[in-house]
Design a protein around this nucleic acid. Structure first.
Length: 536
RNA sequence: CCGGGGUUAGCUCAGUUGGUCAGAGCAGAGGACUCAUAAUCCUUUGGUCGUGGGUUCAAGUCCCACACCCCGGACCA
């Protein structure tokens, strides 16, 4: 087999300091959909996700619960992994934990490279530090509350005066190189509006960055041989240094000569939330420049989900657990809703009614019912097998052509992570297919012109086949059922390493056609309408 | 305080360089059909395009001011 092109995609790694909510699910699902699309489209895809387990916050929480940091991290990491595996059907190839041994090795290796580049120096840091935010604030960014506690003005978290020896990264040196990089790679960050904000931040000039801590030890140690000549203190890396490096670890770093690294680095896409765009668009490329490593090709920044317009927060009590939604609406309806409803990159506001509306109108009515009515007619009127079509007329050719065009439209949309646009066009074609079916009225042709009826049913089923192929990334389970119902043979090795669905069909099958004579079973509804639970 | 984005039918939103741009989907109303998950198809009701000015033969579409919302950033200890 010829070598397939590689595609390396990552999510942000989660800080496992609580329960995963629907916002986490949004990120995992969108990355999963992107990864599945690329797999089906013939790429050798590597999809990395995981947890970010270091830092003072974890250490303190663990102590409070009488656990070691590693025990706490393990417990919480397993909760996140479980959501990926058992709730959302995320087809990741590796679930990385920043406590994994190879990650320590990678983090120390990139640190060493940055030292060799002359970009790390020892100095003293003094400032107001928020443990909760893992960030320093200038005096001006803090305020004293009525109870006398000094807090970060923006986040309201308590800060403490910290004066400590620290290693610094010469971020200031990379101000101009970064601006040059942005200019030469205008698609590095997306959507454009968010990328612009990052650029403006850099244009204001960058300060050097404190990248080590000595006041706690829950982190990747800075290699002792690099520090012993200048300090007797033990330094651990600032969490973001090791967190970002997880993307390299996943690619096999520091073994830069390995097949794996050569194949998958630089990453094709980092998919992240808008809260951490600066780390991925400023610090990360600067670290990589310093380390002499290629920069990732793109960072896509998604928005946040709001509950009926309100921010999700524990205190308001409107946090949605992924399990709850999946149980209420079904996994595929949830996946579809999240990607279809919101323009990717913008914040979105969800309501129960909005989810139900998508599930019923788009899935049950426009797609599910079209499949059901056409397949039922085939079973009843074509001897239970895909019929042999006759000559196509203009109407046939037109709807087939519209379905045909969806593959390229979807590729273009996925390339810039405009998932909503791909789905919108797909459902537009389904609307046309429903109109075609009603116009042709095969139930009338049954007696007048059976051959014409068979052609109409064949064309309709073929349109559904193409749509089903394309929506596999979004709704793997349902799409597979649909393709099974159409008697489409499974193809390729496009499956995810831990996918629970069976028989994905690669997009190579797009150029095929339904095989007349393939027997099909009496169809069962694949996309049920939403049923409200009984009151009380 | 500075910068960016937004404010278009009941709801969610499209609207390129100013001239069929007043649109789509959902919801609502009427009709058709019966193959189908009471689904589908056709027709249709809704808007002075945030407010007030201005430029222009012509402005959601450009300019100015104002109001409200969102996002960045600065400052305010």
């Amino acid at each position: 087999m010829a070598d397939k092109p590689a595609y390396y995609i990552t999510t942000a790694i989660s800080y496992p300091n609580g329960e995963p909510h629907i916002g986490h699910a949004y990120e995992y699902i969108s990355a999963d959909v992107m990864a599945r699309f690329k797999r089906l489209d013939g790429y050798e895809t590597f999809f990395l996700t995981g947890t970010d387990e270091h830092g003072q916050k974890m250490q303190q929480n663990a102590e409070a619960q009488g656990l070691t940091p590693y025990e706490l991290a393990t417990r919480n990491a397993e909760a996140f992994k479980k959501v990926d595996d058992e709730v959302l059907d995320i087809s990741y190839d590796r679930f990385i934990r920043t406590t994994d041994p190879d990650h320590y090795e990678a983090s120390q290796a990139i640190w060493r490279r940055m030292v060799e580049a002359g970009d790390i120096y020892l100095d003293k840091y003094a400032g107001w530090y928020s443990v909760r935010d893992e960030a320093f604030y200038t005096e001006g960014e803090t305020e004293v509350r009525e109870d006398g506690v000094r807090c970060a003005a923006e986040t309201g978290t308590p800060v403490e005066w910290v004066e400590e020896e620290s290693y610094f990264f010469r971020l200031s040196k990379y101000t101009q190189p970064l601006l040059d990089f942005y200019r030469d790679n205008p698609d590095y960050g997306g959507p454009r509006s968010r990328f612009n904000e990052v650029i403006r931040f850099v244009e204001a000039g960058l300060n050097d960055l404190s990248i080590s801590r000595t006041t706690f030890d829950w982190g990747v140690p800075v290699p002792k041989d690099l520090t012993e000549s200048e300090t007797s203190l033990d330094h651990v890396m600032y969490v973001w240094v090791d967190a970002l490096t997880n993307y390299l670890t996943g690619a096999g770093f520091p073994d830069t000569d390995s097949e794996r690294f050569k194949k998958f680095w630089p990453a094709d896409l980092h998919l992240i939330g808008k809260d951490i765009s600066r780390f991925h668009c400023v610090f990360w490329p600067a670290f990589l420049m310093s380390a002499g490593l290629p920069l990732p090709k793109r960072v896509i920044i998604h928005g946040f989900l709001h509950n009926a317009g309100e921010k999700m927060s524990k205190s308001v009590g409107n946090v949605v657990a992924p399990e709850a939604w999946v149980e209420t609406y079904g996994l595929d309806a949830v996946r579809f809703f999240l990607l279809r409803e919101f323009p990717y990159g913008q914040d979105g506001s969800y309501t129960h009614d909005a989810v139900v509306s998508r599930k019923n109108s788009d899935l049950a009515n426009n797609l599910g019912n079209l499949a059901q009515r056409s397949l039922s007619m085939i079973v009843k009127n074509c001897d239970g097998a895909i019929p042999q079509p006759g000559e196509y007329d203009d109407a046939d050719r037109q709807i087939l052509q519209q379905a045909e065009s969806l593959l390229q439209i979807s590729r273009d949309a996925y390339e810039v992570q405009e998932f909503h646009r791909a789905l919108e066009r797909t459902w537009y074609v389904l609307g046309e297919a429903n109109a075609y079916f009603a116009e042709q009225a095969p139930w009338k042709l049954k007696n007048d012109d059976p051959e014409r009826m068979r052609t109409v049913l064949y064309v309709t089923a073929e349109v559904i086949r193409k749509v089903a192929l394309l929506i596999q990334p979004v709704m793997p389970g349902s799409a597979t059922q649909l393709l099974d119902a159409l008697g489409v043979p499974a193809s390729g090795d496009a499956g995810a390493t831990n996918a629970s669905n069976t028989g994905p069909r690669s997009f190579a099958a797009y150029a095929d056609q339904l095989a007349p004579g393939t027997s099909i079973a009496k169809p069962k509804p694949i996309f049920p309408r939403h049923e409200e639970p009984e009151e009380g």
